[in-house]
Computed example of a mutant assay.
Amino acid sequence: MSFFLIINILYALFNLVLIMTWLKMRREKQEETSQRNTKLTVIIPVRNEEDNIVKLLQDLDSQNYPFENFEVIIANDGSTDQTESFVLAFQENAKFNLKLLNILDDKSSSPKKRAIKKSIEISSGELIITTDGDCRVFPNWLVSIEQIFKTTNAKLVSSPVSFINEHKFWNTAQIIEFASLIGSGACAMYLKKPNMCNGANIAYTREVFEEVGGFAGNEHLASGDDEFLMHKIAEKYPEKVVFNADKNAIVLTNTQADWQHFYQQRRRWASKWKYYKDWKVSALAIFIFVVNLGVIWSFITLNYTNLFLKLVFEFAFLSLIIRFLGHKDKIKYILIVQILYPFYVVFFGLIAQGKGYTWKGRKLS
């Protein structure tokens, strides 16, 4: 039995576990509470988001959560467009407490972590919720997050993120690829082995943020405001890091418009892998890399058994996640993306060993 065949058998079993875990998680129903009295702080770090920020603020103005019980802090990180003026104009008639925090562009090595940290310093909420300036949220977004926070007594809540549907293949490919990350990350949390989350939709208590020292220890890394913090919290409270499998909690954002932006974003994400302190998280990343390397080898050697093992079980899992995220129409494209995906994983796995990338007009490392 070849090495790659063994790897693909293990990967098939891995996907089978994910499928069973996801189905079990979706069957569970959280207890409901109608109090909605937790004080929330929504932090939105932004840089040059004049095309998007008003839409998000309008979504927040339509929340079915008591307006007196949440505040929103826009951390304006050196925007050079009209982001600041748009926020100030909206502030005049906002139903909720809207604060604008202007942060000087001091060439920080981790602008987003700095923006979040400074926002927490002036915040008043018990629960900190972060999202991005180019996101959209549903009317029960805050209700859903507070609900699971209350019923599970969680320290960190990770909620689903997906992309706005544009009916283009470039958009479709990103939706399918990202669904695999959201789904596998959710299942890992349910199994009390959290490994990934997304800063566009996470919540954590102010108390636990201070208890673990916030972003201390990885301030020098531009990326990782979400996962490194989650790992620190999970180290102390593995039972209290939970996934919010509620469609009302889904945050939608834009896909990367072109290859150049996609390349820089994925390089930014991949740059975190080498800094994971938990060996299990690093081992999983290496395992996925080897699986996809094996698929490329299967194309070269025409070994269709390997391909079958990977594609069938992975397809079944992805179909469940994509349907949950509201993209049922994308299921028919999964196979195409599955064939292309291994080349993408191997490519970015290799270039992640290099240093530096460009993001929001800045060169970071």
Rank of each mutant, 00 (worst) to 15 (best):
M1W: 07
I6K: 13
L13R: 09
F14E: 13
K24V: 12
M25S: 10
T41H: 10
I44R: 01
P45V: 00
P45G: 03
V46G: 03
D51F: 09
I53D: 04
I53A: 03
I53R: 01
Y65L: 05
I73P: 00
I74Q: 06
E84L: 02
K95D: 08
L104G: 13
D105N: 12
S109C: 08
K118H: 08
S119L: 09
S124Q: 14
T130S: 14
D134E: 15
P139S: 10
N140T: 02
N153Q: 12
V157Q: 09
F163S: 04
N171W: 08
T172C: 02
I176S: 10
F178Q: 15
S180D: 14
G183K: 00
A186Q: 11
C187A: 15
L191M: 15
K192H: 13
C197H: 01
G199M: 11
G199S: 05
G213K: 11
F215M: 09
A216R: 11
G217E: 11
D226T: 02
F228N: 06
N244I: 00
D246F: 08
K247A: 10
N248F: 08
A249Y: 02
I250P: 02
Q256Y: 14
R266D: 06
R267T: 11
W269P: 00
K280V: 01
S282P: 00
L284Y: 11
V290G: 08
F299L: 13
F299K: 06
T301M: 13
Y304R: 06
N306C: 06
F313E: 01
F315R: 12
A316P: 00
I321H: 07
F324E: 04
L325P: 03
H327L: 10
H327S: 01
I331L: 06
Q338G: 06
Q338D: 10
I339P: 01
L340R: 00
F348G: 13
I351H: 13
I351N: 11
A352P: 04
Y357I: 02
R362P: 00
K363I: 06
